[in-house]
C-alpha cells in the first residue's frame, strides 16, 4: 500500500463521514482497505450489524467484481449498489486502496447519496498521506504517547 492515514487525518475522516453522511440519514458508513480492514467507521448509534464480517465480504466482493471487469475488458468498476427491502448498500472506490461503504434506508434518495459519496471521497483523498509521511507521523505520535 502506498498511502495511509495519520491519526489527525483519521479523526478528520470520521468527522467528514458523520457530517456528510450520517447527518443526512445514512445508518452506517465504513471506510475499509482492500484487505478488509476497517479504517474508519461511523453510525447513527443503533447499528447492530457485524461490521468486521461486512468489511471482509465487501473487500472480497469488490476484488471479485474488479477481476470480472478485467476479464470483460473494463478497467474497473468504481461503484456498486445493492438495493434491499428496507436497507440498501452502496460501495465506492477511493483511490485504488480504499472502499467507502454506506448503508442507508428508504428515507435517503440514491441520487443525493451518490453526490454526497462523491464529495466525501474527494475529501478523503485530501486526507491521504504517502506512506513515508505516514510512518513518520506514526512514530511521532508513538513518542508523544511515551
Amino acid at each position: 500500500m502506498e498511502y495511509g492515514f495519520g491519526q489527525k487525518e483519521l479523526d478528520r475522516v470520521e468527522s467528514i463521514l458523520k457530517e456528510e453522511l450520517i447527518d443526512i440519514g445514512v445508518n452506517v458508513t465504513l471506510l475499509i482497505d482492500m484487505a478488509g480492514n476497517i479504517i474508519a467507521r461511523c453510525d447513527d448509534g443503533n447499528c447492530q450489524h457485524d461490521l468486521y464480517s461486512l468489511a471482509a465480504l465487501a473487500a472480497g466482493n469488490f476484488g471479485a467484481v474488479n477481476a470480472m471487469a478485467q476479464i470483460v475488458g473494463e478497467e474497473n468498476f468504481t461503484l456498486l449498489f445493492h438495493k434491499g427491502e428496507s436497507e440498501s448498500i452502496h460501495f465506492s472506490k477511493v483511490e485504488d486502496d480504499f472502499l467507502l461503504i454506506t448503508i442507508f434506508g428508504n428515507d435517503v434518495s440514491l441520487g443525493f447519496l451518490r453526490l454526497r459519496v462523491e464529495e466525501v471521497a474527494k475529501k478523503i483523498k485530501d486526507s491521504l498521506l504517502y506512506k513515508t509521511m505516514l510512518l513518520a507521523n506514526l512514530l511521532d505520535s508513538e513518542s508523544d504517547a511515551d
Binding site: A35, G36, L138, A145
Partner: peptide
C-alpha cells in the same frame, strides 16, 4: 498491511 489505529489503540491483523 495491518491497520493500526493509534487513538483507539487497536490493531487489525490479517492471517
Amino acid at each position: 498491511m495491518a491497520f493500526i489505529n493509534l487513538k483507539k489503540k487497536e490493531v487489525q491483523v490479517k492471517i
